[in-house]
Nucleic acid binder design. Structure first.
Lengths: 140, 140
DNA sequence: ATAAACATTGAACTATACTACAGGGTCAAG
DNA sequence: CTTGACCCTGTAGTATAGTTCAATGTTTAT
């Protein structure tokens, strides 16, 4: 027994069956081989691909961005230099996201502390969290 | 001259005018005072609020989640303990996101290295990036 | 062998988050 | 005092990411 039916795959990846078919239409997962009775039979590894998509979506990437991320490895019509260039750009995006999340986390930690009655805490740590760097660029 | 018209505010925050009115309808920003001629007049600080919303959206939070985040400070009908509890939960979410992004970044760095012809690199670092921890919980 | 649980397609429907009018009023410059 | 850039409300349309449904075929368990 090799391969997963769409239901097994969906369950393993924690997504809906319809979502799997939707991702196939969108080109996020490859069309799998079919059984004699026309059932899709997925390689086990597609569960990881689906889980990746799920997490990446949770991290604010659109399906199109995720498609790009997944196509970075083995892109046949792209030079190594081009792949490297695009990869470095993605890394920068991600670095920025990590940075923003870290600031948000700090703000929430400061808020949690304020809840203990320990103070003094800034009046509005959450808003401050992500605004500081803008000021440096824009000078408002 | 105190306060920003909706157009000035939108420009300062880097969003569309319609978006500002939409966020007002959704309860993400407060209804501002109006001029005699019924124009909205926003406090300067609302630009920061809008920028926060923009960034948080980019980090994968929905408008509803963002609303919750913004209401954590000064929630009148909630005990300090309750606010603290919800805040700690948000911090965990964020910690998880940072973790996932870090793994993704590592994977892309490994991919970028592979582009230099330095090797050997894993065949599929991107998929591996986010799948490892699942295995530990599910034992597949 | 028959019912329950699963699979197929295609099309319609939903939620979220905007975005674009239409039809009007306001304001600042020349 | 008009022209253009701005604002108002309300409604309708769009993009993204699914979700549901109908009508039908297949597999599995009793």
């Amino acid at each position: 027994m090799n391969g997963l039916t769409i239901g097994k795959l969906a369950k393993k990846a924690g997504v809906g069956i319809e979502t799997v078919r939707f991702y196939e239409r969108q080109g996020l997962i490859a069309e799998p081989p079919r059984t004699a009775s026309n059932y899709r039979l997925y390689p086990e590894n597609d569960a990881n691909r689906l889980r990746f998509i799920k997490k990446a979506k949770n991290l604010g990437f659109t399906l199109n961005e995720i498609k790009e991320l997944l196509s970075l490895r083995h892109d046949p019509k792209a030079s190594k230099a081009d792949v490297k260039h695009r990869t470095l750009k993605k890394i920068e995006d991600i670095q920025q996201k990590i940075h923003d999340l870290s600031r948000m986390k700090e703000a929430l930690e400061s808020l949690a502390e304020a809840c203990d009655g320990h103070g003094p805490t800034s009046e509005c740590p959450i808003l401050e969290a992500l605004e500081a760097e803008e000021k440096q660029y824009c000078g408002h």
